[in-house]
Design a protein around this nucleic acid. Structure first.
Length: 431
DNA sequence: TCTGGGGTCCTAGGACCC
DNA sequence: TCTGGGGTCCTAGGACCC
């Protein structure tokens, strides 16, 4: 039994490049919300030494001379392109699960060395031809080793986008050349500690005594150790519903009035409610945090959080938005410059199994809210995101001509590409 | 001037119960 | 001088992932 990890190459950057053939072979970077930091780089941009996470303003000069193409993050585009790729991967594998936005694990059974290699190379060709997106695949007997193999598949052209670790000799060689801080499951903290003990490669780690690993790096570290030694123990995920959902943003600039902050957190609350409905869940607890800008040491700092347990678990926009507004009036203090806020919904259960509270439950009101949300979701699905929003989300500003305009969000996206992939046929699925 | 967002799991320690 | 012991549940914080 083998695991294949299929991983999109520079996913965000290549999704933009798919519709801009002129950018082929040129460095491309994609920015976080508010055009704050670099969150994705094409191979060429990496080669220029542009680091991950660097604030955009520190690189302005390089971008101004056109050396590097810049894009704001375009989630609709990513969602659509990765969806197409995942569909092709799942068609090619007997067993498949998506691990993240740009990675999927496949289980391959009864294939020999050569057919594993052929399968991976063919998958790359098919996906590239079908979607324009390059992918690389790592194949091994544990997921951690497959992940390592996929790094090799990306790094060395000789692998033709597929690296297979299928013998003891290859496993040891792969471990020996792999820095400890790049191992899946070993983060910055653990890597620093391991290095202080003289453990620099994945092989050094795999040769440690198991008891010592258990003592110093608990069960998670032990699992990684076993996987590197070829013992399959990271569980296969099935499709699990989220246990908590968070929507948070930094603002473009800072907000000082409770009204402005309420507009933003109402948006996040509504987005949380939509995410809950999309996965068919309800939440019993709603939380809200508001933070000031911790980079501004000259300004007074404040981080506040509070949460409220709902009498009856809910997914209605009205309920979540209302609760969030209540929380905001509890934690908001005048005199601070707020930079970031977020809504968290947790204690999530299936919508079918609502534990109703005998005092609070109002069947008629519940029915009305459900019908209202269904109607809003349908309209927004057909006519586009945020065609209909509830009143507290609106946000009026005057434009240059003095005319009032209504905005829903205070997030900057100056370099956002068009959405070439969104078509009517994709989004109308109403009965 | 400008500094991302969204998750999960594990553990230690406190509260509480019998 | 003396001050049980063990189990469970919850929470905060740390570490990790993409």
């Amino acid at each position: 039994m083998y695991y294949a990890l299929a991983d999109l190459d520079s996913c965000y950057a290549n999704a933009e490049r798919c519709f801009r053939p002129d950018l082929k072979g040129r460095p491309v970077v994609v920015l976080s919300n508010n055009d704050g930091c670099v969150i994705a780089r094409s191979k060429e941009a990496k080669a220029l030494g542009i680091p991950m996470g660097i604030p955009f303003y520190q690189l302005q000069q390089r971008f101004r001379n056109g050396e590097v193409a810049v894009f704001s993050s375009n989630y609709e585009l990513i969602y659509d392109m990765t969806g197409r790729v995942m569909k092709m991967i799942s068609d090619a594998a007997p067993s498949f699960y998506r691990y993240s936005v740009d990675e999927a694990f496949c289980l391959l059974d009864g294939m020999d060395s050569q057919s594993l290699k052929n399968w991976g190379e063919q998958l790359h060709r098919r996906v590239l031809q079908g979607t324009g997106m390059p992918i690389s695949t790592g194949i091994a007997q544990t997921k951690t080793l497959a992940k390592m193999a996929s790094h090799y598949a990306k790094k060395y052209d000789g692998y033709k986008h597929c690296c297979v670790i299928d013998s003891e000799e290859k496993r040891l060689k792969a471990l020996e050349l792999y820095p400890i801080d790049e191992v899946w499951g070993i983060g910055r903290r653990h890597a620093a500690r391991l290095q202080s003990y003289g453990i620099r490669t994945a092989l050094d780690f795999a040769l440690c005594k198991r008891d010592w690993i258990r003592l110093n790096f608990n069960v998670v570290g032990t699992r990684t150790w076993m996987e590197l030694n070829g013992i399959d123990c990271v569980p296969n995920e099935t499709v699990v519903k989220k246990k908590s959902i968070c929507t948070s943003r930094s603002f473009d600039g800072m907000l000082t009035s409770i009204e402005d902050v309420r507009t933003q957190v109402s948006n996040y609350a509504a987005m949380c409610a939509e995410k809950l409905r999309r996965q068919g869940s309800v939440a019993a607890t709603v939380g809200l945090f508001i933070d000031t800008n911790h980079f501004r040491e000259d300004l007074p700092q404040r981080c506040a959080y509070d949460e409220e347990r709902l009498l009856t678990p809910a997914n209605s926009t009205a309920t979540i938005v209302h609760t969030t507004a209540k929380l905001l009036s509890r934690i908001f203090r005048e005199g601070y410059h707020y930079k970031r806020a977020g809504v968290i919904v947790k204690d999530i259960t299936g919508a079918q199994a609502i534990q109703t509270n005998l005092i609070d439950y109002d069947a008629e009101r519940h029915g009305k809210l459900t019908r209202l949300d269904t109607a809003i979701d349908c309209i927004n699905k057909i006519y586009g995101k945020e065609t209909v929003v509830i009143a507290s989300r609106q946000y009026k500003v005057k434009d240059a001509t003095g005319k009032a305009k209504v905005f829903a969000e205070a997030v900057k996206h100056d370099y956002k590409s068009k959405n070439p992939t969104t078509r009517w046929s994709d989004i109308i699925t109403l009965k």
